[in-house]
């Protein structure tokens, strides 16, 4: 499943820990696996990670199900993860979530029919001073307004085409 380059990356990660402690690489390797598998982890993908790290599949499942960044169901190409905790709520995150729902015609946890967008609400991402905000891929989009949301949606659509 992994390319030569990714396999080398896995080796490099395992080398950070003492001999025999390769299980420590599990979370970093699951991030890599999710990246190359369309943003989610199927049980086949998790089994592959288990074989790479020479641990049992159950050790992978119990970790993948614990951490909220691992998606166990398919997601859209772009996942809007909008923060809804106190500090973002104080700055109007509820309105942003409502706006995205209307704009994309989906509910929280749903994906648009074209498979382009998924909307998720998440708990505090540590950007409270720049609220409201969301995570999009590797980066944060902060100080959100309806206009900014429009621009982000356009940006994603143009990149996807």
């Amino acid at each position: 499943m992994f390319s030569e380059e990714k396999l080398n990356k896995v080796k490099e990660i395992i080398a950070r820990y003492p001999a025999g402690k390769q299980k420590s690489a599990l979370i970093p390797v699951l991030h890599l696996a999710q990246e190359v598998s369309g943003g989610w982890l199927s049980s086949e993908t998790m089994d592959y990670v288990a074989s790479l790290l020479q641990i049992t599949p159950i050790e992978v499942y119990e970790v993948a199900t614990f951490y909220s960044m691992f998606n166990l169901q398919p997601v859209g190409q772009y996942v809007f993860e909008v923060c809804q905790t106190g500090p973002c709520m104080l700055r109007g995150s509820d309105n942003i979530i409502d706006y995205i729902k209307k704009k994309l015609d989906i509910g929280v946890g749903q994906t648009t029919k074209d498979g382009l967008f998924t909307l998720k609400t998440v708990e505090c991402l540590g950007a409270c001073g720049y609220a409201p905000m969301m995570q999009l891929g590797k980066h944060y989009r902060e100080h959100l307004t309806p206009e900014k949301v429009d621009a982000i949606i356009e940006e994603c659509r143009s990149k996807a085409n």
Partner: peptide
């Protein structure tokens, strides 16, 4: 080392568990 979205891993022993995979 990156975590994967769990507030509890800021607690030092949970962090160690997470670092152990």
């Amino acid at each position: 080392q990156r975590g994967a979205g769990a507030y509890i891993c800021g607690e030092e022993t949970a962090l160690i568990e997470s670092l152990e995979g």
